[in-house]
Amino acid sequence: MSTVETPVASSNEAPPPSPLKRIATYAANQQFILFLVLIGVMIFFDFHNTRFFGTSEFTNLLVDFSEAVLIAAAEMYVITSGGIDLSVGSTIAVSTVVGAYAIQYLEGHHFGEFPSLLVGTFVCAGVGGVVGTINALLITKARLVPFVATLVTLSMGEGLALVFSKGGTVGYDPAAAVWSSTGFWIFRWLTLIVLGITVILGIVLHVSRYGRYNFAIGSNPFAARAAGINVNRHVASVYVLSGVLAGLTGMIWYFNSSGGAPQNGIGNELEAIAAVVIGGVSLVGGVGRFSGIILGVAILTVVHDGLVFINVATTWNEVVVAGFIALAAVLQSLSSGSKRRT
């Protein structure tokens, strides 16, 4: 048998880049550019009205960030695993309504404010878990594609929220508002809890076995299965996680609006997906940094709030957000284009 003298997988590595070049690559990084733009936008808002860099506005920004970040994180988990979850918005609606009923019932039965709110939180998470489980079953057992499966639960959740609430806000609970507005400096307790959960989600995605399987499945489900990963079980768990996070967001919205409104959260799945796109996460799965969606949610929040803050008609909001999505998409295609050329 003849032996082959060709070097195997020869190292065609370029020499280490010069420091100047390294700075250039860093500056060309999509997230870095978007971060600079975000800072620029914030300075612009403050230039218009110097109250923008003030504690009360930063408190607001953090509250609004915390309303959006968990479903964006949920969407990130689902999308990087190769799926999509359109139902997160309507899950907020249905969980906030059911949670509000639970809290109303408990407070009506002298259960005490704090315990009622605590139980309500678990009820919301549980309702989200149920929706997530339905998604998981439709996708892994009934073999529906995620887009269709979660479209089913999107309309189901929207409908049930209205049916359960009879169209109006359930409960009015100033206690929740009072509690949700306590904290220190620019932080509310609720915001801090949400930020804590967010950090954990980011760590799990990037340094744990669970996160590793998530990326592997999104990148190549066949390879993941061949490597002994129980792909169906993981995919199911991701949708349940997404549902639970949407359910918890329902509770955050309950706190922030003192009641369970069936319209709350409707349509927010697209905001979550927008954050994911702005954050440079690949919509076909397998690729993305959690820091990207943090940036995406931050940009959406700052634009959304800041335009109102400087008294620009809110109709401009979507136009500006569209600009950010386009910028992110162009940066992404430029960077992957340059990669292809090398």
């Binding site: 003030g54 506005e57 607001n60 609006s257 409104a261 809110t314 109709t315």
Partner: peptide
């Protein structure tokens, strides 16, 4: 513009109040 979402209205009014 709240699109019938109370939480969106809340967030918007908070902006007006802060500014």
């Amino acid at each position: 513009v709240s699109n019938s979402q109370p939480a969106v209205a809340t967030s918007g009014f908070k902006q007006d109040l802060a500014a």
